[in-house]
């Protein structure tokens, strides 16, 4: 398309706008990264603290060791992976039922699923903590993982994708006597790979960044995730640790950032796939 391909000054203008906007969006990240790469008086020596001078990894390594962040990163990683795998599985199954199967009460059930999406965590958290308590799941991985395993968002996303698959595909398969599970595994799921990829990424991001529920269900160091561990770095009344927060922030956001750089295109493509013929 010609309109999409500006030349000459318009091209320069476009890059300028893109560059300026990107700089504004990225500025907070840059400032914090820089703060984290300085230590001691340098970090507080304003306003020159915005220039990349006297860079050191001290703050980050101190945050890492003082905050016991290694263990927390592992916990976050484990929990995020388990939840991601689980959500993809439950979403595939329920999406299949809603997309391909006809049964009485389907509409009502569908509305039920969607309605649960609107229940704020603020409403459920007190009782859920008590449920986890009575199950003996406080301070445990099950307590972090199990309640997050069902996702209506995931079901909707996958169902949307399934609906774009030609109906004949499913009809032909069931005429050939192919079972539901086999069709799901061998046909529907592989065809929905981009969507599943996007779902996986979003679920991973969401779980990695979860704050409220982990803070309720976990108290001990052994099971703490990185998000709630970060707060320990922000000790009230202690100015000397102010800078450590930035080191912790960089560590917490880094894995996600790397993932984003690697998979950003897949994320968009996965979301587009289901939407095209919604």
């Amino acid at each position: 398309m010609r309109a999409d391909r500006p030349r000459g000054w318009r091209l320069v203008g476009r890059y300028t706008v893109l560059g300026v906007v990107a700089a504004v969006v990225l500025f907070p990240i840059y400032a914090v990264l820089l703060q984290a790469l300085k230590s001691g008086p340098d970090a507080l020596d304003h306003p020159s603290s915005l220039l990349p001078t006297h860079l050191t990894l001290d703050t980050i390594t101190t945050a890492w060791t003082d905050g016991n962040l290694g263990r927390m990163m592992l916990n976050s990683m484990l929990v995020s992976l388990l939840v991601t795998a689980g959500v993809m599985l439950t979403s595939l199954l329920s999406a299949y039922a809603f997309a391909f199967l006809r049964f009485p009460g389907r509409g009502v059930l569908f509305v039920f699923f969607v309605a649960t999406m609107l229940v704020p965590a603020e409403v459920t958290v007190v009782i859920n903590r008590r449920t986890a308590d009575s199950l003996g799941w406080l301070n445990s991985y099950q307590g972090l993982v199990v309640p997050a395993l069902a996702s209506t968002f995931g079901m909707l996303l996958v169902r949307q994708m399934f609906l774009t698959l030609p109906k004949e595909l499913h009809e032909a398969a069931s005429l050939d006597g192919v079972g539901h599970l086999r069709f799901l595994w061998e046909v529907a799921a592989p065809l929905s790979r981009p969507t599943l990829g996007a779902l996986g990424l979003f679920t991973f991001l969401g779980t990695w960044n979860a704050y409220l529920w982990p803070s309720q269900v976990i108290t001990d160091e052994a099971h703490k995730t990185i998000q709630i561990g970060l707060e320990d770095l922000k000790t009230p009344g202690d100015i000397s640790r102010f800078n450590l927060i930035t080191g912790g922030l960089v560590i917490a956001a880094l894995p996600i950032f790397v993932m984003l750089v690697l998979f950003q295109r897949q994320l968009v493509r996965g979301l587009t796939a289901g939407a095209v013929k919604g």
């Binding site: 008590r130 308590d133 009575s134 003996g136 406080l138 108290t219 160091e221």
Partner: peptide, 20 residues
């Protein structure tokens, strides 16, 4: 030892069952 802020510790204490 298990640490949290005072407020957090107090709230969790109140909201937990005696066995937890």
């Amino acid at each position: 030892l298990i640490s949290g802020s005072y407020e957090e510790t107090y709230d969790k204490y109140l909201n937990s069952s005696q066995s937890s």
